[in-house]
Simulated assay, not measured.
Amino acid sequence: MEILRYTAFGSDPEGGNPAGVVLDAAGAGEAAMQAAAAGVGYSETAFVVDPGDGFLDVRYFSPLAEVPFCGHATIATAVAHAERHGTGRLRLRTAAGPVTVTTDRAADGTVVATLVSVAPRTAPLAEADLAELLAILGWSAGDLDPALPPRVAFGGAWHPVVAAATRDRLADLHYDMPALGALMARRDWTTIDLVRRESPTVFHARNPFPPGGVVEDPATGAAAAAFGGYLRELGLVTPPATLTVHQGVDMGRPSTITVTVPAGPDTGIGVTGTAVRL
């Protein structure tokens, strides 16, 4: 397999979230994909197979396990495909459901990709789970922003959304990685979406990611899609809305994710970004 390496949601190799991309994984079994992802060592690697029916089948693997959907690896895959085959619209078949991605070139020649997620939804975050999560993070109930209540949100994968009352609280991230990984495995959570609202349309986020074998993800497109759905479902934005999520700043890999929230409770959330070849 030819493994390409890109960083998504960043404008240069020092930012964004690195992802592996295999544009032709035909004939590769699950064990081979898992081994390749472990060898790459990034939080996700995407494996693409073209069955010839108008869709591209895509599977995503962290170094430790397969995940149903990954936003930053999808953006990286779309940009890599556009650089090889030209810009346009791709229809992806993922374990989470169908996802469309559109690529275009900006005035400076950069390829910009926009994915539209599966229909998002939210679920209550049980009080016991929230208490355990806060204890692992070293947060208290007073550290939370009451205007953004805790929920579990889905946009292709499940992510608890927990909002910090201050930017300083979000910046100070230390946690028990094995304990959080165990909790997430029990609940089938992909990352923890810790957020801070700067303004009505600008947010900061950090995403602990023990299931991927990393302490923190510098840009999480799937969580951004889930978060957009969360904001719409709870009436915390007025759609149509365009949001900016800054992630990775506190870990030295600044990333920018643009989230488009359309009207309609069952419509997918748009997630836009660039990707740079490494």
Score class of each variant (00 low, 15 high):
I3K: 08
A8W: 00
D12R: 10
A26F: 03
G27V: 11
S43T: 13
T45L: 11
D50A: 14
P51I: 08
R59Y: 02
Y60Q: 12
E66Q: 14
E66L: 10
P68W: 03
G71T: 09
A73F: 12
T77R: 03
T77G: 05
A82W: 14
L90Q: 01
R91N: 06
L92P: 05
T103S: 08
A106H: 04
D108P: 10
G109A: 10
A131T: 14
A135H: 06
I136V: 15
G138K: 01
S140Y: 02
A141I: 10
D145Q: 06
P149I: 05
V152A: 14
W158H: 11
W158R: 14
T166I: 08
D168V: 09
R169N: 13
D172I: 09
H174M: 13
P178E: 11
G181P: 00
L183E: 01
R186K: 13
R197N: 05
V202M: 04
P210T: 15
P211V: 08
G212L: 01
D217F: 06
A219P: 09
A219H: 04
G221Q: 00
A223Y: 04
L234P: 14
L243S: 08
V249T: 15
P254T: 04
T256D: 03
T256S: 07
T256K: 09
I257W: 00
T267I: 09
G273F: 01
T274E: 02
A275S: 08
